[in-house]
Design a protein around this nucleic acid. Structure first.
Lengths: 117, 117
DNA sequence: ACAATAGGTAGGAGATTCCCTACAAGTCAA
DNA sequence: TTGACTTGTAGGGAATCTCCTACCTATTGT
C-alpha cells in the first residue's frame, strides 16, 4: 500500500541479484575493473557455465554490462543499481543514526544526573 | 579466495533476507516503530502465517527482534544488519563517486578545449 | 473455567534457484 | 579451412523458497 517497494532499475530485482554470495563476490572482483568470463570463473570452484549464468542474473539486474572484445566478453560493473541500493538504505541510515544519538544522550544524562549504583 | 564475502551479522544472510519484496515492505513498516504480527499482516494480501514465516527469516538475519507483550509479540527493527549492508556498500560508493568525478572532468574538458562538430 | 484473541508450527504443492554436463556459435591463429 | 579458444544456451536434477490450510499453544477477559 506504500507504493514504492520496487528496487529494480529497469530490470530484475537488484536485491535478489545480490542475495547470492557468488554474485556478490563477482561484483567485488569487478570493482577492480572489467574482466573476462574465464578470468572471473577462475576464482570459483564451480563450472564456467554456472558463472556465466550468475553473470546473466547480474546483467538482468543492470549491475554489470558486457562489452564484446574479440572472442572475449568483458564484464563491467555498473553504478546505477548500487546507487539505488544506497537510496533504499538512506531512510534506514537515518533510523540508526537516531538510535545511536538516543543512546549517546542516555549515556550523557547518566553522567550529569543522579544515578543509582 | 578473498576471504571476506560473508554478510551475516551472526545469523542468516542479510541480503537473502532482503531479497524478498514482502520482507523489504515489512522492514519499511517497522521503520515507523514496533508492530504486532496482525498489524503487519493487515498490510498484505497473503495469509498471516505466511507473514509470520517472513518475520522469522528477518529475525534469523537479525533484522528484527521480537518482544513478547501480553498475548502479542511486537517486532522491532534492528539497526546492526542494516549498518552491515551500508559497510558492504561503501567500497562501491567510492567506485561510483570516482565514476561521476571522471564524467564531470570529461564534460569540463570539452567545455574548455577544442571539440569537433 | 471458557471463549476469544494472537501467533507460531506442521505438512505439502508449485515455482524457482543453483549447479551440472553436453552442445552450439563466433573468433583467432596457422 | 582447420583447429583451438571463449562464451552462451539447453536440459535436467536436487535443493530451496513461498505460499497455503490445518492445527496447537499461550494469554486475556468474563
Amino acid at each position: 500500500m506504500t507504493g514504492s517497494e520496487r528496487v529494480t532499475a529497469g530490470g530484475a530485482d537488484v536485491f535478489a541479484a545480490l542475495a547470492s554470495p557468488v554474485r556478490r563476490e563477482l561484483t567485488a572482483l569487478l570493482l577492480g575493473g572489467p574482466r573476462s568470463v574465464n578470468d572471473l570463473a577462475s576464482h570459483f570452484e564451480m563450472s564456467r557455465p554456472s558463472v556465466s549464468e550468475h553473470l546473466r542474473v547480474l546483467r538482468d539486474a543492470g549491475l554489470v554490462s558486457e562489452e564484446r572484445s574479440g572472442r572475449r566478453r568483458l564484464y563491467r560493473l555498473e553504478a546505477e543499481p548500487l546507487m539505488e541500493v544506497s537510496r533504499w538504505l538512506s531512510p534506514y541510515e537515518r533510523f540508526w543514526r537516531e538510535r545511536l544519538a538516543g543512546l549517546r544522550e542516555l549515556l550523557d544524562e547518566e553522567d550529569g544526573d543522579d544515578h543509582e549504583r
